[in-house]
Design a protein around this nucleic acid. Structure first.
Lengths: 210, 210
DNA sequence: CGAAATTGACAACGACTGTTATCACACTAT
DNA sequence: ATAGTGTGATAACAGTCGTTGTCAATTTCG
């Protein structure tokens, strides 16, 4: 039943991975053009020039494909932000700006990813739960990598988590507005503004009501 | 064709309004229980014990019903916040806290409304555009009603708008996390924290890079 | 070459969709 | 009481959905 030998030069598992990638890539297009409602097994298959058999070869469910697509975008954004943050200096302000700029760079280069991450992931059930988990994990990850935050106690850390959630949601809203054209700002100004928001909220959330 | 005379004591236009309200009320239930995908003309009609005829009597389209439902929630939250802000004192901090508390009070009383506003409205096309417009209008409205902000110049006002978008998105994320149980916080602590975030971001956004 | 595997196109199934129309029954008005 | 209106249940239409299966053509391997 399962493919084992090569076909047209490429081995079986590589072919399989190629089709899987094609499906993930295609679902981003479907999401951009027709929204969440335009995503179906048939539409994704037709657009990727694959047949339903290869869909079910890689995913049990349509939600599984959507989750995989969102996950791939999340991984890309997170790794870009973390790498930039690590490459930045020791100052918190510089690190925050580098992380925001890198993350924004990913989605501004390929708006489909921003669409999948900020729009589609918010509305659909299983995808929303995934988004919740990702946002929480990402928030914790930010806290851990921010010298000003990772030395907090437990109760303070809970408040820091709320702060991180706030920063994530606020950034998403601003970035979505910028990418959709509703908010006209240069990339530098946008990143500066977001950095200011982050530092302001962080400073207020720690020193203000400490 | 159109109803004119009374039936079982209630006049025609009142009956019509009653059915319209029932449909809006029902779509909030459908959104809570089955998400956006569980909303269809048939499901809403079955659940509200009405027939498709009365759906098309009040709405041309399924999206029109969704937009109407979201609008009704938006109006409720906005009016509650504005009323509380007007009833608060002159201090900006007090006003902000009152507005946040009032808005949160609406959605914590009826989580269906938070779900419709923060979740469903984010994913669906026509509903998302509506949400964009609402968030922008609401942001401007906040700026106008905040003494610390409504005296800004034009270029500063554009940055204020980005700030308002940030505050809206961040608050939505935190409120959604709190209502879903992922973030455990008392109402007072939550409102305090959000207020701190707002004041911090506002202070940083104005004084910081002014 | 011939057998086995891989591929692509397409049909079939029941279920659901939006939308319109039809039917008998409840109520109102004259 | 009788004619006309409002109501509710239900059927019908074509279309799409997820899912599984079939069949001929292409490619690989013994």
């Amino acid at each position: 039943m399962v493919s084992t030998r090569a076909y047209r030069g490429v081995p079986a598992d590589e072919r399989r991975e190629l089709r899987r990638s094609a499906l993930i890539e295609t679902v981003l297009d479907c999401l951009r053009d027709d929204g969440l409602g335009g995503v179906s097994v048939r539409s994704v298959c037709a657009r990727s020039r694959l047949t339903p058999r290869y869909f079910y070869e890689n995913f049990d469910d349509l939600d599984q494909l959507l989750v995989a697509a969102v996950d791939s975008v999340v991984d890309e954004v997170a790794s870009a932000s973390l790498a930039a943050m690590a490459a930045a200096g020791d100052e918190t302000a510089t690190q925050v700006r580098a992380a925001i700029d890198a993350g924004y760079g990913v989605v501004v280069t390929d708006p489909r990813k921003a669409n999948a991450l900020l729009v589609a992931a918010a509305g659909h059930g299983p995808l929303r739960e995934r988004r919740h988990r990702v946002v929480t994990d990402y928030a914790d990850l930010i806290i851990d990598n921010l010298p000003a935050l990772n030395a907090l106690g437990l109760s303070e850390r809970r408040r820091a988590r709320a702060t991180a959630l706030f920063l994530m949601g606020g950034s998403a809203e601003v970035i979505e507005a910028a990418l959709s054209g509703r908010l006209r700002m240069s990339r530098a100004r946008l990143v500066d503004h977001l950095t200011t928001m982050w530092l302001g909220a962080l400073g207020a959330g720690l020193g203000g009501t400490g």
